[in-house]
Simulated assay, not measured.
Amino acid sequence: MNGLLVTGTDTGIGKTIVAGGLAGALRERGIDAGVCKPLQSGHLTVDPEGDAARLQALAGVDDPLDLICPYSFEEPLAPLVAMRRAGVSLTLREIEAAYRTIADRHSFVIVEGAGGLAVPYAENSLVADVAVRLRLPLLLVARPNLGTVNHTILTVEYARQRGIEVIGVILSGLGSGPIGVAEETNPGLIEEWARVPVLGTVPWLGERFEASAVRRTIAECVQLETIMSRFQLKAI
């Protein structure tokens, strides 16, 4: 299966914008990219404010929401906690089956995790275990401001300990606060100390945004050619 898993250094970091926008930008280049959010907490799948619905809109895919995200829980908690409070038990087997359903419909799939790499996700499983099970490399989304170097290095090092490849980092939300020396120097520090490329910096797009604007921003601000080359994706 050809794809990647988008994770973050924190929750609310911009993973959905990056994952959906990247899929949409690739699709505009003629690449058959799909999106998958196997498990979602905080919104039910059908909620238009939820990650699954936003992924669908940003990517511009016609896959049904219940295929993009077959498992959802309304409480805004770690997925495992929300799942248990709903009286549901899911394992990596169900998560893998959800991914493969989407993978059978597309030549490339972008999977969005939940929170960070060490978030409890399913029974006996962290988000990292999902990446290992699906054999997917990571695209790490991080914030651009002070403190992000520490969080990014820790996440990258943990991924390496688990044998997971990190193809790069995307900084998300530049401009939501003041831009100073930290924001200007963080990309270089991340590349120097985490030893992974920073593939782009995505500006703050506000609370409300149009899907076309997100796709355009991703195409302008992210090194799409590098990602396409890594996965041998050919534009049409």
Rank of each mutant, 00 (worst) to 15 (best):
S41I: 07
V35T: 07
L58S: 12
L26A: 03
D47A: 01
L26W: 01
E28N: 12
L80H: 12
I31Y: 09
M83Y: 13
L39T: 05
Q40P: 01
L55E: 11
P64Q: 07
P48H: 10
L26M: 02
E74V: 03
S72R: 10
A53S: 09
R27I: 00
A59S: 07
R54Y: 02
L39N: 10
G60D: 10
Q56H: 05
P48W: 14
L55D: 09
G34N: 12
L26F: 00
A82S: 12
P70L: 06
A57T: 08
K37M: 08
F73Q: 08
D47C: 02
L77S: 14
A23W: 05
P79Q: 03
D62E: 13
D62R: 14
S41R: 13
T45H: 07
A59M: 03
C69S: 11
A23C: 02
A25F: 00
P76K: 14
S72F: 06
P70F: 10
L58N: 13
L39W: 13
C36Y: 02
T45I: 06
A33G: 03
A57C: 05
E75Y: 06
G34V: 02
D62Q: 14
A78R: 14
L44D: 14
F73H: 13
R29M: 04
C69A: 04
L67A: 15
S72V: 04
G24H: 08
A52I: 05
Q56N: 01
E75Q: 15
R54I: 00
C69Y: 04
K37T: 12
D62I: 01
Q56S: 07
Q40D: 02
D47K: 05
L55Y: 06
G24K: 08
Q56W: 03
D62F: 05
C69P: 01
G34A: 11
G24W: 06
L44Y: 14
K37V: 04
D51W: 08
H43P: 08
A52N: 12
P38G: 14
G34M: 07
V81Q: 03
T45W: 10
L55H: 11
E74H: 09
G42H: 12
L80R: 15
K37L: 05
G42Q: 10
A33T: 11
I31Q: 10
E75D: 13
L67D: 14
S72N: 07
P64H: 00
I31K: 15
G30A: 02
P79M: 04
A23P: 01
G24I: 00
D63N: 10
R29F: 01
I31A: 06
R29V: 00
G30Q: 05
P64F: 00
A23V: 01
K37D: 09
P79K: 08
Q56V: 00
D66H: 14
E75W: 05
S72A: 13
V81D: 04
G42M: 02
C69N: 15
G50S: 07
E74Q: 15
L80E: 12
L67P: 02
E49V: 01
G50A: 11
P70V: 10
E74R: 15
E75R: 15
D63T: 15
T45L: 11
